[in-house]
């Protein structure tokens, strides 16, 4: 197990991180925790991108892609939090099970 670190090690870590993010996405009730799960999934994706970039052909292209992923993660977090705050104003809860109507 404790061999020299290579591509596979990073892929396994990112796979586990993706699984944990997916679990948060499926089972958490609080909307902010679902957002954290999305951040975990995006981080797993970024680790994959940069690991493949280093161990395969074209390193800089992979890093530029990772920058775009980070940019989209920022936009998504900002807008999702604005929506969550609006939901809290209307429903007084951020529990996604309670929020099941389009209007209060």
């Amino acid at each position: 197990m404790f061999t020299d670190v290579g591509l596979n090690h990073y892929l396994v870590v990112s796979g586990i991180l993706f699984g944990l993010g997916l679990f948060a996405l499926i089972s958490r009730k609080n909307a902010i925790l679902i957002l954290m799960g999305i951040e975990l999934i995006l981080n797993a994706c970024n680790i994959n991108l940069i690991a493949f970039a280093r161990y395969k052909a074209n390193p800089i292209d992979g890093q530029v892609m990772a920058i775009f992923v980070i940019i989209l993660a920022v936009c998504e977090a900002a807008i999702a939090l604005a929506i969550i705050i609006n939901i809290y104003k209307n429903f007084s809860t951020v529990d996604v099970d309670e929020v099941n109507t389009l209007r209060e």
Binding site: I32, I50, A66, I67, V74, L81, I85
Partner: peptide
């Protein structure tokens, strides 16, 4: 060996998104 991405990760995720998430927790 992705130094720029590492710095961007700290600046944007920890300095930006995490603070935003904590604000969201405090507001909701």
């Amino acid at each position: 060996r992705a130094d720029f991405i590492a710095l961007t990760q700290i600046l944007v995720y920890i300095g930006g998104i995490l603070v935003l998430i904590i604000f969201g927790i405090m507001l909701t």
